[in-house]
């Protein structure tokens, strides 16, 4: 129709040149659509939890250990889908002025750049450490092969007296145990007292850590039997009072 393509001058409102009117940007998202999105979000939450549980279960009972990136990629993909749904429907970006989507897109791109550059640095630290440590030359004690403070990867948080906070916490607990045992058994000599405190420490540790919350790796760590053993993963054992094995191999279980 003619007047659709060429509106008459009378129909032109200079205060509203694009005929946006009062309601133009008010999109109504109905209850059924909102409920559907909620249902999908809850299902995806169940899926991500189920995925993590299934992975632990496979690892604990069948020894099937999926590569670590599978766990991360699975959980993060599901989270991303959930986030996109919330932004598109609940936050109405799908129906909104595209400028708002552009703002979020640019923000997320900036965030991706931060994380990418952080990752590039992190995954190349070993080269940087090697380079900073300089060439290995004959002589010296070899005690400072990594160059010194500031570039050591495992510099622990320390108390003002230079002790690891975690080690300090452990020693304070042992001190309290020794005091408690001494109060009830004053006849013990220092060696017996120390042994009793350490034994109590291990028993308390098994009672506290052993049950866990059904948290991650809590079952996988109990894989040691008479016929097979699982080596400690990446832990120095520096804070462990037991010579070998892990906390779950302790008695009281």
């Amino acid at each position: 129709m003619a007047h659709d393509t060429t509106p008459s001058p009378a129909a032109f409102d200079e205060l509203d040149p694009h005929h946006s009117g009062v309601h133009a940007s008010h999109v109504i998202v109905g209850p059924m659509q909102l409920r559907a999105v909620l249902a999908v979000l809850l299902v995806f939450t169940a899926m991500t939890v189920g995925f993590a549980q299934a992975e632990q279960w496979a690892s604990a009972y069948f020894g099937v250990v999926l590569p670590h990136w599978v766990n991360v990629a699975g959980a993060m993909s599901i989270a991303t889908i959930k986030a996109l749904l919330v932004m598109a429907i609940f936050m109405q970006l799908k129906y909104d002025n595209p400028v708002n989507t552009l703002i979020m897109g640019v923000t997320l791109a900036a965030l991706a750049i931060f994380i990418c550059f952080t990752g590039m640095d992190l995954f190349n630290r070993s080269q940087v450490y090697d380079w900073k440590a300089g060439p290995i030359v004959a002589g010296g004690t070899g005690g400072q092969l990594w160059g010194g403070e500031g570039i050591s990867e495992n510099k622990a948080i320390t108390t003002p007296v230079g002790e690891s906070v975690a080690l300090h916490a452990r020693n304070e607990y042992l001190k309290r145990l020794r005091d408690k045992i001494k109060a009830t058994h004053p006849e013990l000599d220092d060696a017996a007292l120390e042994a009793a405190a350490l034994a109590q420490f291990e028993a308390d540790k098994a009672a506290t850590v052993g049950h866990g919350h059904g948290g991650h790796a809590s079952h996988a760590d109990t894989g040691n039997t008479a016929n097979r053993s699982r080596p400690r993963r990446g832990l120095s054992g520096a804070l462990d009072t037991a010579a070998t094995g892990n906390a779950h191999a302790a008695p009281a279980h």
Partner: peptide, 12 residues
């Protein structure tokens, strides 16, 4: 941090 049973020193 005062938890006595930490295994890894970086857990704080």
């Amino acid at each position: 941090f005062t938890y006595p049973f930490a295994v890894d020193p970086q857990v704080p």
